[in-house]
Design a protein around this nucleic acid. Sequence first.
RNA 1: GCUCGGUUCGUCUAGUGGCCUAGGACACCGCCCUCUCACGGCGGGAACAGGGGUUCGACUCCCCUACCGGGUACCA
Length: 486
Amino acid sequence: MTQVRTRFAPSPTGYMHIGNLRSGLYAYLFAKSQGGKFLLRIEDTDQERFIDGATELIYRTLKDVGMSWDEGPDVGGDYGPYVQSERKAMYLPYAQMLIKSGHAYRCFCTKEELDERRAAAQAKGETFKYDKHCLHMDESEQREYMAQGRPYVIRQNVPTEGTTSFTDLIFGTITVNNSELDDNVLIKADGMPTYNFANVVDDHLMEISHVMRGMEYLASAPKYNLLYEAFGWEIPQYIHMTPIMRDAQHKLSKRDGDASYEDFINKGYLKEAIVNYIALLGWNPGDERERFTLSELCEAFSVQGMSKSPAIFDPAKLTWLNAQYIRELDAQEFTAHAAPYYKQAGIAHMNSDVLCRILQPRVEVFCQIPDMVDFLASYDEEFDLELFTNKKSKTDADVSRGVLELVLPKLRELPEWTEDALHALLMGTAQAQDMKNGTLLWPVRIAMAGKAVTPGGAIEIAVLLGRKETLSRMEAALCRLKAGKG
RNA sequence: GCUCGGUUCGUCUAGUGGCCUAGGACACCGCCCUCUCACGGCGGGAACAGGGGUUCGACUCCCCUACCGGGUACCA
């Protein structure tokens, strides 16, 4: 196998788990870094849980982040079909080949009796292992059972002695005692292959050079090798990937509510940030770079940088990275992303240039916008007058009253309600009064916003609110300050 | 229980026997900037799971223990 071929084999579950996406991403990056092919295979054997549109969601997500596949159900390829349910008939003949060569055998033991024996063994604290009972069955008896139409499974006949080794590109060579391997089912009683068997056959048929999959399959790798050897097939390279954790002992799961790609997009995370972040969760480039586009990842990726231990998902770092990407957006892009949130906050009609200017450096995730600007559309007219007191700006209720009385008439007469004009007026007034900028600006801002913390300052807020609203809020505040004075 | 694997700041990680007084990033704290909050700039605290070896010298190699995870299905 000279060409690197990797595959991403998701199940159409109706949502794209972030850990799953990362597995696909690594498979994609590895293939691309090696000039190889990346294939998409849909593993839809779990027919019972068929979800409408689930396959399309997979396509859409991969396309959205820019992970294009060279072969797959929709684009075709020479190794199809790429949907597992369409491959159903392919597996049985391979299992039969194994029976012929003695590497597998029919087993007529029923699930019920096996379950019972397993339970009994576990009760005694022992590990249950199939005893190869049916391997030693008379051929005549076997024929009789088959004639009777008794259901049977096909089991792998693993050696009872010796050891089996396999090599993983991340974990190195791992050796296990064959005595610990069980004769697992290859073909179920209903004729369908088990996941592990289907994978071996599919990966071989599709000439997958590097089998990249989750750690949970590490333990079955020895049995895979035994199978490849029994068939006389070339053994692929294995790359087992660690899971993404919610905390030290739990995987990030669907239950966490925000484990899917869509969830993040809906909250206002940028796809570039998501891809960049998950790439770094369990992989590092070997230098201190942290910002990567997809194509930069393709260049930088290598399995040497992949981690041996699970990584805990850190929403704070994702958010930071997202903020970095948001700051790099041009004004138009920013506004396009922010628009739905402007609408939600009732400020869609306001000056988007100013909004962009005050929000872009502050927003880390777009969904934060409504909370940040809630005071623009409507504010709390009964806000605490204590807000007018600020030590650093040297203001209190009295000073504020004075400032508002001084500034209001000038604002009423301001010919043009523009940022420049407001700036000149307010700053000019402060200077003329020999006042700190803050002493003048603080009361103005508080009067307009009714809250201590606002994105942007008095001037920007005044522009956004417009003359009428600005004046009315300031008048109301002045009125209350006078009343408070008594 | 058995078995396989993992273990560096709170988190993601660099580190492959001397370059380590253990580096970076996020988070946190402080200062500067400043009309608030941010942005930005500067600075700070913060880790080799524990114990034995091996070696002139261990974060790096070996063994043991602890903890965490995987596997132990006619699930994937």
